[in-house]
Design a protein around this nucleic acid. Structure first.
Length: 903
DNA sequence: TAAGTCACG
DNA sequence: ACGTACGTGACTTAG
């Protein structure tokens, strides 16, 4: 077999990569997308080709002779983006680190070098692959020289391959004739003028017939179309010059020995330590795994120890005593009965909640993967984690790990001995939403680790143990190692940012409260849910019929695309708004049409009912566990503002505003014999705003227990309090909302259906009456611009990078966020404090009632009948007393035997 | 997987 | 001139 040379068109591939990928930057702020994409393409090619020789050619930056000739009369080429320019030396450094031969030659383009080398290689009997994004290189294709053009697609990189036959098939001309096609057609990006009036089609057809421009010129009088016939003569000089420009030089005087480009150790020889360090610096995580063979390991990895025998396990736990211990339960099937064959496992469903192992770390050298098996049972591990006396427990994700214990009860006094890496990292930067160990290791330890996905892919720990045990072990060990090592760094950072108290007194205790709430769950009646769904189904079918009739055909009403066509094209309804992809069929658009067009009203109702059925009736039923309850997950590290979120299912968006939807709350029940007590804060955000701003008028209104929207209306519209009309109140309410959201005249006008001028009038008037609110909002934005973040009353920060955006709209958004987040965030702080106090008091006082749900300004308690009065008192007291401000916190409480009645 | 829609605070 | 209200999550369609 002949030897193989891979030639890469450096700038072309770098350019492709740069434009094909989003702007990636590492933590130093270096732009890395082009380098990353280049390496990906190169590795893909190398994996396929397994070449003996490899060379990358670059243009020297000074303009070449050929281009100067033309640039002189047609202006210069566009300058390279700064972000791309920076990456040219970076890729060269990377290639050098990999020992890859780089060729550049003053006065010659990369094309010429590639052409020259491909000819030399072919003569030496080699096969050549030329990698470029540029079709001009197709002229170099022969039977032994394949031109390969990578295309970045959604599904990954696909490569088009061209030997002589492929060029002929696709373009109808030979590779050499391709030069002549270009001479006629021209190429603006390469500054080749070509012949005016001859485009892609004509050029291809002419050369297919005549094979070269000279023949076309000679037979000019017979050339069609007439425009081409005329211009080929008139612009003959230009055509000749174009041909010269388009011709790649095949005999450039390049100093080059194949031996310099030899990959003596195969592709593996590229994975050098230097290159590894560069990949690490640029944070190319996925690429690091390629270096497995020769890569220097993190020191930690040498200390990962798999423990399978009881004696060693005991000694490890003994050694961990009284130390700071990071732990994580590795979820999966316990391996303790692994010798039994399928028979038994049929019997006992695989329990995803069981222990596969426990990973623990308590020093730089003590990192263990204690695995279930013949000697070690999951109950042994559970027992150890529950009884071991340690100085502190460190967890990468505390709540999740608490759930993985078979049994765990933690007294409020012990909470301080725990550390939650995820929650700490969230407080420091709440914008990310995800805090896996590899991200924390990068941000706070400067360690580039493979992610869980890198290690496990789509497999779970149990599967990976069978497939490749080391990967499962490394993943689990790195997680606890990161948690252990990052604790002091994160705490220091929290201290520097004045968030230690927030962490210790609010967020950390809250972890345990949320854990208990998730375990409690809320009872849901599956039968009632089914009945509710069936009832909806009947109405939906009826509406469907009516809609199809009115439309004159059946279509998918749920498809905005199809619906848009029916409404605005077939039925010719007036269309106002459009989205990127077509007509907007959003509710606010349809509502305007509904009074006049019955079909639109039906569609709106259909939407409502199908939403209720799919998301709530059908959706929720899948979440009722074997105990008859729904156990939502309350996420503590998702929102930018400090609120909680609820998933699988989301119990924070159960319908209430519309009666039909509200009925679904009748399926949410307390346990047999109990009742619900439900309290919500009244106007918590406006009260927070009043307190933060210190605006006397608004504080006074709250002190007097006035209806705040009416009071605002009275001020803004200069009307005596008792004479405020419903419309005035409604408008004032919208303004109050707008203020909390970060006011803008446009938003308000949209919401109220008034002109922007009018809306601006409301806002101006509002600020005249509440001057301190204006002052406060202005100051908040100023501070946010100065600091880069906002702060809540309890010190929670929210960074707002948008404030520095060069984009006006982004900056405007940043300002609204700056106004909103201290308000929303402080409200979130307050209810979190209330939750902890309420939860703990229920326990301390030996009550059997339990906090089970939080909906931003509302707490729901499942209450024993006998404890009802106590609970109401306790709940209201702790919610009111959670914060002490110039404005008191008021709450409203309701009781009931289902959630419908209790709210 | 993204976009559109809509449920909640 | 730009073109939006703040914060979430689930479901559906369609590429």
């Amino acid at each position: 077999m002949s030897e193989k040379l891979v030639l890469i068109d450096g700038h072309s591939i770098l350019n492709r990569a740069y434009h094909g990928l989003p702007d990636l930057t590492n933590s130093e702020g270096l732009h890395t997308n082009a380098v990353y994409g280049f390496l990906n393409i190169m590795f893909k090619i190398l994996d396929e080709e397994k070449p003996d020789y490899l060379t990358v050619a670059f243009d020297v930056h000074a303009p070449t002779f050929r281009h100067r000739m033309f640039d002189a009369y047609k202006g210069t080429r566009k300058p390279m983006d700064e972000e791309l320019r920076q990456q040219v030396p970076m890729i060269k450094e990377m290639l050098t680190a990999m020992g890859i031969k780089i060729v550049e030659k003053e006065g010659y383009e990369a094309d010429d070098i590639l052409g020259t080398l491909s000819v030399r290689a072919e003569k030496a009997g080699m096969d050549v692959a030329i990698i470029s994004g540029d079709r001009d290189l197709l002229q170099l294709a022969t039977d032994h020289v394949m031109v390969r053009i990578p295309k970045t697609k959604k599904t990954g990189t696909e490569i088009e391959n061209y030997n002589t036959a492929d060029v002929i098939e696709k373009y109808g001309v030979t590779p050499k004739e391709f030069i002549d096609v270009k001479a006629l057609q021209g190429d603006t990006s390469d500054n080749i003028p070509g012949v005016p009036g001859i485009g892609e089609k004509t050029a291809g057809a002419l050369i297919a017939k005549y094979h070269c421009i000279e023949a076309v010129h000679e037979d000019a009088e017979n050339v069609k179309p007439p425009r081409a016939s005329k211009n080929i003569v008139e612009y003959w000089e230009q055509a000749l010059m174009s041909k010269e420009l388009a011709t790649i030089i095949l005999d450039a005087p390049v100093d080059y020995e194949f031996s310099d480009a030899k990959l003596s150790g195969g592709v593996e020889s590229l994975y050098t330590e230097e290159a590894f360090l560069l990949c690490k610096r640029y944070e190319f995580k996925n690429m690091l795994s390629r270096f497995n063979v020769e890569a220097p390991k993190n020191n930690a990895e040498e200390h990962f120890v798999v423990v399978r025998d009881l004696k060693t396990a005991e000694s490890v736990f003994e050694k961990a005593k009284d130390r700071e211990v990071a732990f994580a339960v590795v979820p999966g099937e316990s391996l303790e009965n692994s010798e039994s064959d399928g028979q038994l496992s049929l019997f006992s469903e695989p329990v995803s909640n069981d222990y596969l192992a426990v990973s623990i770390c308590f020093s730089e050298e003590d990192i263990y993967f204690i695995c279930t098996g013949d000697e070690i049972s999951s109950s042994f591990l559970d027992e150890k984690l529950n009884t071991l006396e340690v100085k502190s427990w460190i967890s990468p994700d505390l709540k999740t790990n608490l759930h993985r214990f078979k049994s765990k009860e933690i007294k409020a006094d012990d909470r301080g001995r725990y550390f939650d890496m995820m929650v700490a990292a969230y407080l420091i930067n709440p914008l990310v939403g995800e805090y896996p160990y590899d991200a924390v290791a990068k941000d706070y330890l400067g360690l580039m680790l493979s992610s869980k996905k890198d290690y496990l892919g789509k497999l779970d720990f149990t599967q990976m143990m069978k497939e490749d045990e080391k990967k499962a072990v490394d993943c689990a060990c790195y997680e606890v190692y990161t948690a252990w090592k990052s604790k002091p760094v994160l705490l220091q950072k929290l201290k520097e940012m004045n968030m230690l108290t927030l962490y210790r007194d609010i967020e950390l205790p809250l972890v345990f409260v949320l854990y208990d709430m998730e375990n409690e769950g809320i009872r849901a009646d599956g039968i009632k849910l089914k009945e509710y769904g069936d009832k909806l189904a009947v109405s939906i079918t009826e509406l469907e019929k009516k809609i199809y009739e009115a439309a004159g055909e059946e279509f998918n009403i749920n498809s905005p695309k199809q619906l848009g066509v029916i409404l605005f094209e077939k039925l010719g309804l007036p269309n106002e708004k459009k989205t990127k992809t077509g007509y907007s069929t959003a509710a606010d658009v349809l509502e305007k049409l509904a009074p006049e067009y019955p079909i639109v009203a039906d569609i709106l109702e259909y939407r409502q009912l199908t939403k209720l059925k799919s998301t709530y009736a059908d959706g929720l039923s899948g979440y009722i566990a074997s105990d008859g309850k729904i156990h939502t997950t309350l996420n503590q590290t998702i929102t930018a503002t400090g609120r909680l979120s609820s998933t699988e299912p989301n119990l924070q968006n159960i319908p209430i505003r519309i009666e039909l939807g509200k009925l679904i709350r009748k399926v949410f029940l307390p346990e047999e014999g109990d009742l619900f007590v439900d309290s919500d804060y009244s106007q918590i955000e406006l009260r927070v705003l009043a307190a933060l701003s210190g605006d006397e008028r608004m504080i006074e209104a709250f002190k007097n227990g006035q209806d705040i929207h009416r009071s605002t209306a009275s001020l803004v519209f200069d009307t005596p309090f008792d004479e405020v009309t419903d419309l005035q109140r409604r408008n004032a309410k919208a303004v109050n909302f707008g203020i909390v959201y970060g006011i803008s005249a446009f938003g308000l006008s949209n919401d109220l259906g008034i002109s922007r001028k009018e809306a601006q009038g409301y806002i101006d008037s509002y600020f005249v009456k509440y001057p301190k609110i204006k002052e406060f909002l202005d100051q908040t934005v100023l501070d946010a611009k100065k600091n880069g973040y906002t702060k809540t009353m309890f010190g929670r920060i929210r960074p707002i990078p948008e404030l520095n955006s060069s984009n006006f709209m982004q900056r405007q958004f940043g300002e609204r966020v700056a106004m909103n987040s201290p308000i929303q965030g402080t409200a979130a702080d307050i209810i979190k404090i209330a939750m902890i106090r309420v939860h703990d008091r229920l326990l301390d006082e030996g009550l059997k009632s339990r906090l089970i749900l939080q909906v931003h300004d509302e707490l729901l308690i499942e209450t024993k009948e006998a404890e009802k009065d106590k609970v109401i008192k306790l709940l209201e007291k702790e919610m009111r007393g959670a914060v002490d401000m110039k404005v008191s916190m008021e709450v409203g409480t309701e009781c009931g035997y289902d959630w419908y009645d209790a709210h």
